[in-house]
Computed example of a mutant assay.
Amino acid sequence: MTRNALYIGREWSVDHNRRAKVSDGELRYAVLGEGEPVVCIHGTSIADSLITPLKFYPPLLEGYQLISYYRAGYNGSTLDKDALSIEEGAEHVRELLDHLGLEKAHIMAFSFGGVIAFQFLLSHPERAHSAILLEPYLPREDPNAVQANIDAFMGAMKVYETGDKLGAAQRYMESVCGPSFLPAVEMTGPLDVWDRVEACVDTTFTVDFPAISQWGFKMSEADRFGPKPTMPILAVMGLDSESAMPGFRETQRFLMEWLPQAERCGIPNATHGLQSMNPVAVGEAALSFLRRHPMDG
């Protein structure tokens, strides 16, 4: 954990009180701060696990306009069908930018949200000025990593099938991020964070997981998926992520080898839940990167 105390009052939630109509749904979103726009894309299960922890690093909000949205099916954002592909999720990002009248924005995304962001960079590179990828959960190929991912999913699915939705979500999080992640979420998320997670578990298991399993991208065949993104990219990894679950080092190496412009960043005392476990360090890294790559530069 960060050495700094995490204190900004009693309730740390962010009110996503605006709405944008997109294909097959409506997204709730919030705008915090002023300056160049940064679209924040959350991962599975915890829709508040990106924007809320970032509030613990006020300089980021003082210099940039953070646009956080709940992905379709999460926290009141609607999905008008039973499935949503990774490509369709990337289109939602484009439609949100259109709704906001933004030609370009910085992108900051975590885990499953990083997969959507990665697809967005492939599909609409002209709309992203830069990207901060917090351990995007790209499909693993190393056998040990593949098996670890299968074990995590199957263990959580067994719990989900019993009807214990919150238990299933937490089982998966603990398998991927390690046991110290859950108390970190409890202390860097809203007071009712687990109620919010429980209400959205069906989206995690019936929409997100099938979407990533059906996504066609493979790191070993990346060149056939179109031109490489050329915008500045920061590949961020928790220093303890690989010890909690194999696969994150493989993804980090891919990003550094495939993208010659990519920069790297390590977050100490953090596993895959890096921005929940050390939000100050993530905020510092994001601010430094954004300042290095201004839109008017």
Results as ranks from 00 to 15, higher is better:
L121H: 10
P136L: 05
T78S: 13
S85Y: 09
A90M: 01
E26H: 02
E126H: 09
D80Q: 15
K104S: 07
F118H: 14
E126M: 05
L134I: 02
V14N: 04
N75H: 11
K55Y: 00
Y64F: 15
L79A: 10
E11N: 01
L133R: 07
Y70Q: 08
S13Q: 14
L27K: 04
R127E: 07
A47F: 13
I51G: 12
S45G: 03
S49H: 06
D82G: 11
K55H: 00
L122T: 09
P53D: 04
L96S: 05
D48C: 06
P59K: 01
S23N: 12
Y57E: 05
S13G: 13
L134F: 03
S49R: 09
G33T: 05
P59F: 01
L133C: 03
Y69T: 12
S111P: 13
K21P: 08
A47Y: 13
E26M: 10
S111I: 01
R28H: 14
S68W: 11
A131D: 08
P53V: 04
L84S: 15
F120P: 07
L134G: 01
H16V: 02
D15G: 11
I86R: 06
F120A: 14
V38Q: 00
G35H: 10
G43A: 03
H99T: 15
V31N: 10
G63E: 15
W12E: 14
I46R: 08
A131Y: 09
I86S: 03
H99D: 11
F118C: 10
Y7Q: 15
Y137N: 14
A90E: 02
W12T: 15
Y69Q: 12
D98E: 07
A20T: 06
A109T: 03
L134R: 03
S130R: 04
D98W: 04
L138R: 11
Q119G: 09
D24E: 13
G76T: 09
K104Q: 15
G63L: 04
I46Y: 14
E62S: 13
L138S: 09
K104A: 11
P58W: 05
E34T: 15
R127G: 12
V115G: 12
L32P: 11
H16L: 11
D48S: 05
I116T: 03
L79Q: 12
Y29I: 07
K21R: 14
A131W: 13
A109V: 00
L100Y: 10
S85Q: 05
R71T: 10
H99N: 12
L50I: 05
E135R: 06
Y64I: 00
S23M: 10
D80H: 11
I8G: 06
Y137A: 07
K21T: 10
A83Y: 10
L100E: 05
S130D: 08
I107Q: 02
A109L: 02
L79T: 13
I67E: 03
L133A: 09
R19L: 11
K55S: 13
V39G: 07
R71L: 08
A131I: 01
A72F: 03
